[in-house]
Design a protein around this nucleic acid. Structure first.
Lengths: 333, 333
DNA sequence: CGCATCATCTGGAACGTTCCAGGGCGCACC
DNA sequence: GGTGCGCCCTGGAACGTTCCAGATGATGCG
């Protein structure tokens, strides 16, 4: 009824009048088959609606050519990264297996499911696991951590120079004449510590140590909104925010309160997520170089798998400032 | 070096001094093994760090117990749905295989990759493929389409009563005294047609046929922003929007233009995505019942697989109006 | 005592691939 | 006109499981 057995190599072989080995060769597009036969085999495969069984294929070849990716479904920036990983993986001939972390599905669970599927390497987006857990994992197969730093010799890291990112932001604002520049931070989120440090460094470098203000924030819009309300009472002329999502919340509260942006307060986000690029948000932001990061992450994973020599355990990608409409000259005075 | 071969059934069998068949039985927790032997086998497996190879397992047993899910990485509502699918699947003993659609990876590609992985059924979130393509797919294995309607007897559909959703929205607004109620639509997006129709019906029912205004919108914030700019010139007192994302764009433009919400214009979104729930957005919206929809979608897929009788091909879930802060009484007059 | 029964265990054949060691066969070359 | 060398192509053994048809031995029963 429902399940007339799905066609296999043997079926195609029979129809084309050749051996299954030959069909296998043709399907993999390997040398070793004549042009005419090749055509006939492909025709037969097409007619039967044959699709190779990747399970059997991988079982036999011993390799899965599968990169496991753990990401947070609720993070728009993770969506951007996964998008980049897909295209990076395509170029290398590896496939991606996605495993999401949701409120009801934690990181360990997401990881185990990938391991059962025989992923050869793991790419983790901003994982919450401790360095020890990650190290244990890395002992069994290559692990690449994306967008977070990990102090462990066994795990590879690809991340943005987050401290540098905040230098860019503060330099930009200081250049516009701002002095009272606040920072809304990301708490324990991956990358938050580095950005906080970058902010402090840059302020000191500009001789603004006494104007430093760090407000507790987070990674969501509501975290930003909450922080912005604090901002209204003791008002700086500019603020750098942990990420774009959080910055959106800040913008929203400011706009509603009638505070002009960038007239009265300039705002700088982080990530250059699709959010920031929206015409009506038009957020000045520190861009993470998603294409490079994802390409590097995939390259690192495959290099480890293929035993290629790996130069540095940690690759740090420079950020780039994207100036848009939410920053402008400081109020005179 | 990296890869000392991972232990197999045979390794465990040798260590425990039994046959591999017996180990298989023990690992699957099936009857047919004595208590003492069972203990010894488990001990050996533990010692070797044995993990079953799901690929080999599925290859042999002919079943994969895998549900393929195609979703759009950039849609927050899809993220909500996938989250729900994960928990629904867990309850039934099936696993999910995710395959994302991105700007560089189209729907056919996402689907093919799932087919190669031998997914037993496909769950497609708001797919863009034509009914004909979906039907062809459904001929080979169960296909459940989520959040879109499809006129084809072969594919199952689980969707919200979208027309009804707009009835709720319009009724609510009319009840607040609104007469000039506009609708910003979703164009060719899944569900858009039904919502548009629901809007028209409801307006007619309230005797407001001559006050109907349908503005072209879309599913993103910038679509909403664009539509909102049109709105500013010929201003209604209320507007129903295709989805929450689009409504956010509308809100943003209105707020920036100094138009009070809900003072001067009331806004109703659609989806009740996490976006709408944010304290500072606080969007009145039509909620889709994600837990029910996802549970139904998974149940439908597994029912088909197990040959259970299926009552209706299409399951329509009622929406629910969530009144928050963006709607209020119409201006007197 | 012989035979059926039961629980426990084993060996080997699948599953759909890939990989390897060849088998023909035509053709150039000495 | 053999010999050797390419090219196509084939058959069968793996890969790590599950499944099935028994083997074995203990036990119960007439």
């Amino acid at each position: 009824m429902r399940d007339e057995r799905r066609p296999t190599l043997t079926d195609v072989a029979r129809r084309a009048g050749v051996s299954k080995s030959l069909v296998s060769i043709v399907m993999r597009d390997e040398p070793g088959a004549g042009a005419e036969t090749r055509r006939r085999v492909l025709e037969a495969a097409e007619a039967l609606g044959y699709q190779p069984d990747s399970r059997a294929r991988l079982l036999r070849s011993g390799r899965s050519r599968l990169l496991g990716v753990v990401f947070g479904l609720q993070h728009p920036f993770h969506a951007d990264l996964v998008t980049g990983l897909y295209t990076a993986a395509r170029e290398t001939g590896y496939e991606l297996a996605l495993s999401a972390v949701t409120p009801e599905r934690d990181e360990p669970e997401a990881i185990t499911s990938l391991l059962r599927d025989r992923c050869e390497a793991l790419i983790l987006l901003g994982p919450r696991s401790t360095a020890a857990v990650l190290a244990r994992l890395a002992a069994r197969r290559p692990v690449v951590v994306l967008a977070r730093s990990v102090r462990d010799a066994a795990v590879d890291v690809v991340r943005t120079a987050d401290a540098r990112g905040l230098h860019l932001a503060v330099d930009h604002l200081a250049g516009l004449g701002h002095r009272a520049i606040a920072h809304i931070d990301g708490g324990r989120a991956p990358g938050a510590a580095d950005r906080r440090r970058g902010y402090r460094d840059a302020m000191r470098r500009h001789g603004l140590s006494d104007r430093m203000t760090i407000l507790p924030g987070g990674l969501t819009e509501s975290d930003g909104a909450a922080a912005a309300r604090t901002l209204l009472t003791d008002r700086p002329t500019a603020v750098t925010v942990f990420n774009d999502r959080c910055a959106t919340g800040v913008l929203d509260v400011l706009t509603r309160a009638g505070v002009g942006v960038p007239g009265e307060i300039s705002v700088v986000g982080y990530d250059d997520s699709s959010l920031a690029r929206l015409a009506h948000v038009d957020l000045t932001t520190v861009a993470q170089d998603v294409p490079s990061m994802t390409r590097l992450a995939v390259a690192r994973a495959t290099d480890r798998l293929e035993g290629a020599p790996v130069a540095r355990r940690e690759v740090v990608v420079p950020p780039r400032l994207v100036v848009r409409g939410t920053t402008g000259p400081a109020y005179p005075g």
